[in-house]
Each structure stands twice: as C-alpha cells, then as structure tokens.
Write a protein that binds this DNA or RNA. Structure first.
Length: 259
DNA sequence: ATGCCTCCCCGAGGGAGA
C-alpha cells in the first residue's frame, strides 16, 4: 500500500499538476496540505472519478488538509484536539478499512515565523498538542502514522545551507526539540530509517533559483508507530516533481507499507 | 538575503508562506 503526503500549495493552482501526478504514481492514499479551499469548493469529483474517497478539512484562503483514499475511510476526525479556540484547519485523521485497519493522521504544522513572537508561540503550543495526540496514538498500539508538512528541519543535514536557518522557526532548537520529543515516544521517522546522509529535500523556495541550485530543506515527514514501522517496505521523496510544469514548492513523500 | 516568487483574496495591492 502506497501512502503519500503532498503540500500542494493551493488546489486551484494545482488543478493540472496534481491529477497528472496521481495518474503517474497511483498512490492508494494521499494526505494533502495547504489546499487553500473551503470544503464546498474542493474539486472532489476530480478525485472521485479516479476512484478516491475524499475527506476534507478546509478553510478560506489559508491552510486546509485533505485525505484521498482508494479504500473506505471511517471515523474521520477534523482538528487537532486540545484547543477549542483554534480556528486553523491543520489536522485530519481517519481509519483506512483494508485487510488490516490503519489509522492515518494528516497534518500541516504551523510555520512559526517570525521567531520569537506570537506565531512562534502558536507553533510550539500546537506541537505540545501534537505530542499529546501522538502519545495517545502510541498507547493505542495501532498500525498508525502521522504525516504531512511538519515545517521542521530535523537536523543540519536536512538543509543545503543550515547556517541560513539557524534563527528560523523551522530550525530553532526549541522547534527541533519539540519534534524530537515526539519521535522519542517511539515513532520511526520513515525516510531516515532507510536513507542517511545530506542532500535529500522536500521543499525548494520559488525564489532565487533554489531548485536549480538544489538549495532545499527536508520538512515533510512520515512518523510511524512501531506497528506501522514493522510493515514498511520503502520510503522515498518524489523530488523530480519539483521540476514539472507549474509545481508546488513542496514535493510528495511516500511510504510503501506491507498492507 | 532585508523574501529575490507564488499563492490567496478579488479586481488593487497586501498578507502569508518558509
């Protein structure tokens, strides 16, 4: 079973590139971030005609997450628990009904810049809520994963120019510590479980020829519970997608699970 | 690199992104 995460940077802007990528790679499940659309305007037919079930958690202009799945979805839950005042659409989870149940969580973690400041405080508070959800997920002993745009550069090797990110909300020590604290619950960071070393990125800025210079960062991640990690056959970054026509600034990352 | 682009809102130009 191939499961992908993809920050598409706007569903309208990706109305051609996204279905082309789906037809080429045929993922079973896709977690989308930054759909930048309310639920009513999401072009669900585009995916339903390709055999996907569609669940969205949208918002006007900003944020917004969605799940596409060729298998049925149950127990869909929208919004990260822990703050009833939080209006931002950054979390959706559901159970995939196959031979064996799989709990999938799609997330769009706040950027947090400028740091320090209120946006950074929101990022760290959101990560504390994510930690609590992650702890419960771990305790459930389910085959489960949390994937999406974490807006976290885990290590210096995950940036082409780490020194340029030292003070940035994506790489500040507090951000990385909060990410590490979640990993240390016992999650497997899928990509790093299979591939070591520098030069592997999932985001390249539109500006200053970042793609052509391979000036990227790795901020889109899959975290697997032990029960899911046992089933992992592969994990790859589809970096070539960044060179396609009218690309997102992120590329898809996917795992293949023996499910 | 102080956001150099790109996206969204809409119908100009500002906010957000990373």
């Amino acid at each position: 079973m191939k499961i992908a995460t993809f920050n598409i940077n706007g569903i309208k802007a990706r109305a051609e590139a996204l279905p082309r990528w789906l037809d080429e790679t045929q993922p079973d499940i896709v977690l989308l971030q930054e759909i930048k659309s309310v639920d009513e305007n999401f072009p669900r037919e585009m995916f339903e005609e390709r055999g996907y079930n569609v669940e969205t958690h949208g918002q006007k202009s900003f944020n917004g997450v969605a799940i596409l799945s060729k298998l049925p979805l149950e127990d869909v839950s929208r919004g990260l628990p822990g703050d009833d005042e939080d209006e931002q659409a950054r979390w959706i989870e559901a159970t995939v009904i196959g031979k064996q149940a799989l709990r999938i969580c799609g997330l769009y973690l706040p950027n947090g810049n400028p740091a320090p400041g209120p946006k950074y405080d929101y990022k760290l508070a959101w990560m504390e809520r994510l930690y609590r959800r992650a702890r419960d997920l771990m305790a459930s002993e389910e085959v489960a994963l949390m994937a999406g745009d974490y807006n976290i550069i885990p290590q210096a090797e995950d940036a082409a120019r780490p020194d340029a990110w030292r003070e940035d909300a994506l790489f500040r020590p507090e951000s990385r510590a909060a990410f590490r604290k979640i990993l240390n619950l016992g999650f497997t960071e899928a990509f790093r479980a299979r591939t070591q070393g520098p030069g592997h990125y999932s985001f390249w800025d539109y500006q200053a020829g970042a793609w052509n210079k391979n000036d990227g960062i790795r901020i889109d991640h899959f975290l697997l519970t032990p029960q899911a990690a046992d089933l992992m056959r592969d994990c790859q970054i589809d970096s070539a997608v960044r060179g396609h026509e009218k690309p997102s600034d992120h590329v898809p990352v996917w795992v293949d699970l023996d499910l």
